[in-house]
Computed example of a mutant assay.
Amino acid sequence: MGKSSPSDIESRTDNARAPQSFYPPMSKPWFPWLMPTFVIVNVAAFVYTMYINNCPATTGRHRCVFPSLGRFSFQPLSQNPLFGPSTKTLELMGGLEWILVVKEGEGWRLISCIWLHAGVIHLLTNMISLLFIGIRLEQEFGFLKVGLVYVISGFGGSLLSSLTLRSSISVGASGALFGMLGAMLSELITNWTIYANKVIGEGMRRRILFW
């Protein structure tokens, strides 16, 4: 038998040390643009709502919160503790109110209320959550699927609100966010083996490299 050359020995050694793949190759992530666009739309809708609200003209400048903001100043905290517009303005802008949907046939409010927020605190909480959850999902599944989940979940949340909150106005993207959170948890549970094997494979790769 002939002797193996040093290059053959080195090649076999490298092959022996190569980590075994425990999970299928990940597809190239989508570029997330829809979720940031939704954030911009929500922020723009809130700014326009505050412009329409015009607290100094409707409530009195001395009663508004941060009156230096002019017509963008907030309603008194006794009326809206979330630093936002009045209930009347939210209704005017398309807030969800059960009697208007059922009695007046204004079904469009089931969608329009998703893009409105009761105040700055409400807006910031939802938008941070949307970026944290939505961008991850959009990178994985693309804008079309995630956009459908957002709108359908928001619509479902509006239906639920109209059945349970009949004496108040409902606004916000909480229903859409809960739907996306459910989608994220479902994806995690479904692909748990892949993620677990990925962690194991990465650990073995590091052990082999330092062997």
Score class of each variant (00 low, 15 high):
78 S>N: 08
143 F>E: 09
162 S>D: 07
192 W>D: 11
102 V>Q: 14
91 E>S: 12
126 N>F: 11
91 E>P: 02
188 L>I: 15
112 S>A: 15
153 S>I: 00
138 E>R: 03
188 L>C: 08
138 E>N: 04
86 S>G: 14
175 G>N: 02
119 G>M: 04
171 V>I: 03
100 L>W: 14
167 S>R: 14
61 R>V: 10
150 Y>W: 12
181 L>G: 14
81 P>M: 14
80 N>L: 04
153 S>F: 00
187 E>D: 15
58 T>E: 13
76 P>K: 05
139 Q>S: 14
97 E>D: 12
164 T>D: 10
175 G>Q: 04
115 W>R: 10
173 A>H: 12
71 R>H: 15
66 F>I: 11
133 I>K: 01
132 F>G: 11
79 Q>G: 10
121 I>D: 04
116 L>D: 10
127 M>P: 02
160 L>H: 09
180 M>I: 06
117 H>T: 09
63 R>Y: 14
109 R>P: 03
126 N>H: 15
65 V>P: 00
166 R>C: 09
157 G>D: 01
105 G>F: 10
132 F>P: 06
176 A>Q: 02
126 N>I: 07
120 V>Y: 03
77 L>F: 05
66 F>A: 15
174 S>C: 09
169 I>R: 02
157 G>R: 02
172 G>W: 06
179 G>E: 01
133 I>L: 09
156 G>I: 08
64 C>E: 03
192 W>C: 08
125 T>F: 12
95 G>V: 02
82 L>H: 05
154 G>Y: 04
106 E>T: 13
60 G>D: 02
152 I>C: 08
173 A>S: 14
105 G>P: 11
97 E>F: 13
88 K>S: 11
145 K>W: 10
55 C>T: 05
67 P>H: 11
68 S>M: 10
74 F>C: 01
180 M>D: 01
181 L>R: 15
70 G>M: 04
176 A>C: 06
69 L>R: 01
95 G>H: 06
97 E>I: 04
89 T>H: 00
58 T>D: 12
94 G>H: 05
138 E>C: 03
